[in-house]
Design a protein around this nucleic acid. Sequence first.
DNA 1: TCTGGGGTCCTAGGACCC
DNA 2: TCTGGGGTCCTAGGACCC
Length: 408
Amino acid sequence: MKNEEISKSNTNRIIAHLDMDAFFASIEEADSPIFKGKPIAVGSEALNGNGRGVVSTANYKAREYGIHSALPISQAWQLSQKAKKEGKDEVIFLPVDMERYEQVSCGIYDIIKKYANVVEPASIDEFYFDLTPSLSLRGATEGSDAAIQSSSTNSRLLRRPAKAGLLAMTGEDDEWKQAEKICLKIKKEIKEKFKITCSVGLAPNKLISKIAAGKKKPDGFVIVRQEEVEVFLEPLSVRELPGVGPKTGEVLRKNGVEKIKDLKKFSYEDLYDILGKYGLDLYYKAKGIDDSELIESREVKSIGEQTTFDKDTQDAVYIGDIFEKLCSDVFLRFKESGFKSFKTIAITVRFKGFETKTTAKTLKESISSEKIFKLEALKLLLPYLDSRKNPNNKLIRLIGVSIKNFNN
DNA sequence: TCTGGGGTCCTAGGACCC
DNA sequence: TCTGGGGTCCTAGGACCC
């Protein structure tokens, strides 16, 4: 409780959120000049319109065709054919080259790290970083949990550029000006090094900086200061709040909430009644309050792989082969992870029609044996392949396997 | 007509223990 | 005849994100 109260007073931060523009597609475009200016969709195989996957990222040219992330690749293919008939360029469909994107992602992290002591890689193409100039000062004066930082964090503080340290002496206005300059520098360096653009939001917390970064894509830069937060939020749809997806959006809509300003009319208790504990989160988000800290690194909690078959199938031998391969891949990644053992195995089976079942088993003892892992995983899968136990003869669309509960 | 693959976090209910 | 209540672990499923 006490810590919470202290953190509520934790204002005056300057947090940046950097979001790469059409990341995968932009990299492909930058890496292959022949693609320049052409519509590109990075994703699973198009297979002449028969592919079963979705688009990961479409570049802005392809978005003009109506192609976007998560669109079924078959539909993207149709849109491309339609455009072709109209005399426009056909869409270039490319597979996902995750290794390459991770390489670029690391390069971007390194650039940001030159200017900010605390950086949170939120995903392969998103980063939060703290540009509060008096970070160490704040920690010392507040005497709160901000001061009780790990020794590794403290050692990072020592490496803070001298320039940032000087900022502690200047006025608040200058602090924001300095943060703005740093963001522009980072944007410029990324563009020079990788020939790709990003959008940045600068705000008093993670929530607002993330929303701000999405406001002027591509190559945008939006600054929202503390006193501007509520005005910035009010006209936005609640769906723009991270964490409010289709379901929550619909529940809110049924309660007369479309915009964030509608959400603000509800009391803490009302929102709890409507959405349970999550409603309480929303109560604060609607007001632009977010005291969450940046997370510089997080432990992996699970490792898993899954695959969708080209055609729905019941062929137990075929399914078994693919399943074994998935297990091998998961086990390889487990080995590379450095964890010593794991305790829980889960499998997923998705049937034709998208009905999805998961079965998990936590073993009595942690294991590190590939043989035992595969045996136990297979035991979980078997009931779904047994025609006696799958009486409706349901065809299988996808299988997957994952492990969790790791030991170091 | 469709709906990938990699994750995280949360909840509800049951089992079990003291 | 009456069966508490707190805590933890586990499973299945849902919602969401990139």
